[in-house]
């Protein structure tokens, strides 16, 4: 059901969406560069990503014996594609690229595709450490995915719609992040997890020589890393219509509010990386199923009762 307030743009505008996603990706990597430099006491952190990108683009590609190149490249390059597909359903102010009636499920399906992509990246190189990293990601996935799904269900129940624009419009006056905080936190946790970021980075951990990305080099590594930042940015952008009232806000136009909120969430997620310890895949499973999932279910129950009570 298309929302009357939303205008669907011509497909050519997806180039602009890609540019915005690219800018957010660069901003996230620059912020991470600054934070990394500060923790080491080094200067010029903001330009580190550019130097790193230039270095990787000139680096010779590493080859491994009997690599499954098709699956390997698909996995590494797929993250960027998934992030780009995710932002198609995020409304920017009153414009959207794809006013899908089941936009929330669309986002969910795409974040599940990341399971396949990270594992394929780990598998393709035909390298033991790389494969261990791929399995670590799936182990995390079993722990974070169901809480993330129920976190996505909560705003949809409250808005009685799976359309992202309608979910945003349903938060008139009171953001979902305020009255369903557990779902909001679990959603952000899911975004961090499917970006293989911060506490969920053991899949690419240095204890297994870089894990899923152990054998990635040159431009393949650049695309994989950019994909992680892009996923983080797409997840932050999706949090805005789902939990933070979309483009609602005083003075500024809707599209600008959406961008400002996205940047704030993205900055928070990037900053978290150095603040939260790594979640070991074997022990996180129990946390996921015995703590996070019941919390998500209770949150869903509360939201459902509120919605029924309101009539």
């Amino acid at each position: 059901m298309p929302d009357e307030a939303l205008r669907t743009l011509a497909p050519a505008w997806s180039a602009v969406a890609l540019l915005i996603l690219g800018a957010l990706t660069v901003a996230a990597s620059m912020l991470d560069g600054v934070l990394a430099a500060r923790s080491h006491g080094a200067p010029n952190g903001a330009v580190r990503p550019f130097g790193e990108a230039a270095r990787l683009m000139r680096q010779r590609r590493r080859t491994t014996v009997e690599a499954d190149t098709l699956l390997w490249r698909t996995g590494g390059a797929g993250l960027l594609v998934v992030a780009a597909l995710m932002v198609t359903v995020v409304p920017l102010g009153r414009w959207t690229l794809f006013d899908l009636d089941v936009g929330v499920v669309w986002f969910n399906a795409l974040d599940v595709v990341v399971w396949a992509l990270v594992w394929l990246t780990g598998w393709g190189a035909n390298s033991a450490h790389s494969l261990v990293g791929g399995y670590r990601f799936l182990a995390h996935g079993l722990g974070y995915e169901l809480p993330l799904m129920f976190a996505l269900v909560c705003p949809a129940i409250a808005a009685t719609s799976l359309n992202v624009g309608r979910v945003a419009a349903a938060q008139d006056g009171l953001w979902f992040a305020v009255w369903m905080p557990v779902a909001f936190v679990l959603f952000l946790l899911g975004v961090v997890a499917f970006s293989v970021w911060g506490p969920f980075s053991p899949a690419i951990g240095s204890d297994i020589a870089g894990g899923a990305r152990a054998e990635l080099s040159g431009v393949d590594r650049l695309v994989f890393e950019a994909g992680r930042y892009a996923l983080l940015a797409a997840g932050a952008a999706f949090a805005v219509p789902m939990f933070l009232g979309g483009g609602a806000g005083p003075l500024l136009p809707g599209w600008l509010w959406t961008l400002v909120k996205t940047l704030v969430v993205l900055g928070l997620l990037v900053w978290l990386r150095r603040r939260v310890p790594a979640a070991r895949p074997d022990t996180f499973m129990e946390v996921g199923w015995l703590v996070l999932l019941p919390a998500a279910l209770l949150q869903t129950l509360v939201v459902a009762v509120v919605v029924v009570g309101r009539g």
Binding site: V102, A109, V113, W115, A116, L138
Partner: peptide, 21 residues
């Protein structure tokens, strides 16, 4: 059948990721 289509993709990719293991 937008919902059915997207959910089919969601479930099957997840299932195949686990199945590969």
């Amino acid at each position: 059948q937008n919902y059915v289509g997207v959910v089919t993709i969601l479930m099957m990719v997840m299932e195949m990721a686990i199945m590969a293991v």
